[in-house]
Design a protein around this nucleic acid. Structure first.
Length: 479
RNA sequence: CGGGGUGUAGCGCAGUUGGCAGCGCACCGCGUUUGGGACGCGGGGGUCGGCGGUUCAAGUCCGCCCACCCCGACCA
């Protein structure tokens, strides 16, 4: 039963990714151009991600609500930059119930406009603020070039929308949610990220300031993995979100929005995966432990299954997400490869020898081969397994961090920058002019990813033009 | 939306100067197997991406269209 091999990651990263997403049954292509079907294994991972994020949203005072999928087209014309940014990728409904609609409806590409409209109805007094609402849903953007999870015409995400009385409060909220995203990425996904501010050309259409968490994928390209925007009063003015302050004066509110999408699933795949397939972080993995029973005779089967079932029940009770692979029609060797491809963090083998010695064999997905294999006693197994899962989570983060850090360099000049961005990120002083930004892009295909929030002391000179620069920026190729 | 590539069984592919549509894996049945991708025997499965044209005859030649992938420009 020879299974098709994956294209090695080093040979062709893009092919490797596409094949893996399909083979691991994360997602599939849909009959509709550019759309994806998220399969149960991929969706369960997303559900675990949602739970981890939603918990953090609630802890920071937010509540969930649902806003409509369809938005009056005219709403998009109320904010100049917003309409310019999104016009090319809107899907528009013109017919309803067989009749041409009086006003076309846009399938939401994001919900600032319709939520802004509602907020203008709900906000009258300073006492109504802040409004802190999140929505889980999907949006549609008519993308020309799509890739499963990373860029699809419809994608699933959450979008938070908040309104505040003061600029300071709204800016604080923007950064608070950026921190939430960073904590989620690092703690749950085991993906190290750099928090930063987007350049003028890279920022969200309609925002005053966009912030991002940038992650480095296994091919050293950058992925914007979550964004948090300070919208100033742009949408408040466009939609009349006004309130009366304590001095009885009419004021425009200050708003923010922030989103994280199923793109993060792609980030997990591209950050941790290897030639054998996925490697999922234990905290999010749909299956944390897979048990593979091994036996020859019926007598052996009886003994092995008895032990395997007992251990299964014990680990289940301890809150570990696990699966018993008791398929009769495939060999243990096949199962090893199968579950490695699907990225299950820990494999437990239970055979006659283990029953005899009252132990089990554990194989860590993050350490291939003999190095990751150990034999542990069945006594206190749940605790040992939990410890190992914690260790795997930490090891994955450490490995990804070491990889990223070894691919970020400080170029001495443009020649060096050109070389660095072929296989990593350049961390350079930059004068923040569009001219210098586009010059780098023309020369290298690399764009500014972000100006990290945590900056070194002092000032320097722009890597491109040599003029004084206040901040450093990361240049890199991106998805 | 430009450039390139690919469309033949569920998947991966072969198909010569046009002449009965094939191979491997997967699938179904039976038996033997099972600590790193098992083996034997026997089966089933096709509008050759679509439409049109040339021809006695088209997977193959010609034209148009469609889809997908890769590389660019644009974006979470």
């Amino acid at each position: 039963m020879a299974e098709e091999q994956l294209t090695p990651r080093s040979e062709n990263f893009s092919d490797w990714y596409n094949e893996l997403v399909l083979k691991a049954e994360m997602a599939d292509y849909s009959p509709v151009r550019g759309c994806m079907v998220v399969r149960p294994y991929g969706w369960t991972l997303w559900e675990n991600m949602q739970a981890a994020l939603d918990r953090r949203f609630k802890e920071t005072g937010h509540v969930n609500a649902a806003f409509p999928l369809l938005i009056p087209k005219s709403f998009f014309e109320k904010e100049k930059e917003h309409v310019e940014g999104f016009a090319p990728e809107l899907a528009v409904v013109t017919i309803g119930g067989g009749e041409e609609l009086e006003e076309p409806l846009v399938v939401r590409p994001t919900s600032e406009t319709i939520i802004g409209y509602m907020y203008s109805k709900w906000v009258k007094s300073w006492r109504d603020l802040p409004v802190l609402i999140n929505q889980w849903g999907s949006v549609v953007r008519w993308e020309l070039r799509t890739k499963l999870f990373l860029r699809t015409a419809e994608f699933y995400w959450q979008e938070g929308h908040t309104a505040h009385a003061t600029e300071a409060e709204a800016r604080e909220e923007t950064l608070r949610m950026l921190d939430v995203y960073a904590d989620f990425a690092v703690t749950e996904c085991a993906i190290p990220v750099i928090k930063g501010i987007k350049s003028e050309t890279e920022k969200f259409a309609g925002a005053v300031m966009s912030t991002t968490i940038e992650a480095m994928m296994g091919d050293t390209k950058s992925l914007q993995s979550g964004t948090s925007h300070f919208l100033g009063q742009n949408f408040a003015r466009a939609f009349n979100i006004q309130y009366t302050d304590k001095n009885n004066e009419l004021q425009y509110a200050w708003t923010t929005s922030w989103g994280l999408s199923t793109r993060m699933v792609g980030a997990i795949i591209m950050t941790h995966g290897d030639d054998k397939g996925l490697i999922l972080p234990p905290r999010l993995a749909p299956i944390q432990v897979v048990i593979v029973p091994i036996y020859r005779s019926d007598a052996e089967k009886g003994l092995v299954m008895e032990a395997a079932n007992r251990i299964f029940t014990e680990l289940k009770a301890a809150g570990i997400r696990l699966k018993m692979d008791d398929r009769e029609e495939v060999t243990p060797g096949f199962k090893y490869n199968d579950w490695e491809m699907r990225g299950v963090p820990l494999r437990m083998e239970i055979g006659p020898k283990d029953v005899e010695k009252s132990s089990v064999a554990l194989a860590r997905r993050d350490r291939p081969g003999r190095e990751g294999k150990s034999f542990v006693p069945q006594a206190n197994l749940a605790a040992a397994v939990a410890d190992m899962l914690t260790d795997i989570q930490a090891a994955m983060l450490a490995k990804a961090t070491a990889f990223r850090d070894s691919h970020i360099h400080d170029p001495k000049d443009m020649d060096e920058l050109v070389k660095i961005v072929q296989n990593g990120w350049a961390y350079s002083w930059w004068c923040e002019s569009k001219e210098c930004e586009s010059k780098v892009k023309e020369l290298t295909k690399a764009s500014t990813r972000c100006m990290p929030v945590d900056q070194p002391e002092g000032t320097g000179n722009c890597i491109v033009c040599g003029q004084p620069a206040k901040r450093r920026v990361l240049f890199g190729k991106s998805y």
